[in-house]
Amino acid sequence: MKKDIKKAGTGKRIGVHMKRYLPLYLMMLPGLVYLFINNYMPMGGILIAFKKYNYAKGIFGSPFVGLKNFEFLFATKEAWTITRNTLMYNLVFIVLGTVLAIAVAILLNEIRSKMAKKVYQTVILIPFLISIVVVSYLVYGFLSTDAGFINNSILNAMGKEGIGWYSEPKYWPGILIFVNIWKNLGYNCIIYYATVVGLDTSLYESAAIDGANRWQKILHVTLPGLKPTIITLTLMSVGRIFYSDFGLFYQVPMNSGPLIDVTNTIDTYVYRGLMELNNIGMASAAGLYQSLVGFALVLIANLIVRKLDKSNALF
């Protein structure tokens, strides 16, 4: 009896709930359909990672091979190098990228002239829109051994010997970090800038009345206001920490052999190794491994955030 009443109660509540929120649910529908078709349906393909894929037999007909497809990722000590490179580069990108993007967003906000603001914004965003292949040639223009700008116009002019940039691994962590930040700063900055602009102006007014200077206003109003955005964006990048920008690590160093120790990431390793083997099973295994680790890291990071501050956690 009790149960029935409860059921009827929930049913009624759901009815009321639906009536109120139906338009919102309807608006959500196209997105959900898209998500389902685009992201969930192909998940059946995960099966391939555990199979010896045979074109004639298809996904379901191919024989199971257990975890054999994953072995190549851990077969040699390269496994350690590529994991280290992927993780460390991404960590630096996340930390440095976030700090710089916020700094620039705040600076943009402090600029009074509307005209200047627009110009800076555009200039910062342009690199994000340039294809990575073009970027790799821009870098080559600077670093090419005999015709490059740095060797030719700077080092030679100072009477110094040119550097063979593409065969000296020690410079590349710095170069790659610089290129990545230069390229992506504009995009990240815009998101933070939008949040800064949206902050309640009355907060600044009251801070001014309390006698806060500019620096204090940034420290006590802007940054706390940005906190939810920072956490969300960071959590999202943590989910992709096991992926690397293929263009950045393959095209920009011009696939140079001597640099491989510092430029080889999981994606480039898989590409170099499977280019000739053409093995779909092994490629899917690598992809699945990356997303599983990413998934786990997001869960852990979110758990930590929730422990520290419940209201800021993603879920």
Partner: peptide
């Protein structure tokens, strides 16, 4: 090469690292 695919993948990476640079006289 199916019985030794893991080794083939690993070797392909090592060769990419040294082969072309040695053969072009850069190392």
């Amino acid at each position: 090469n199916t019985p030794v695919q893991n080794q083939v993948t690993a070797c392909a990476n090592v060769i990419a690292k040294y082969g072309p640079a040695l053969e072009c006289g850069s190392l």
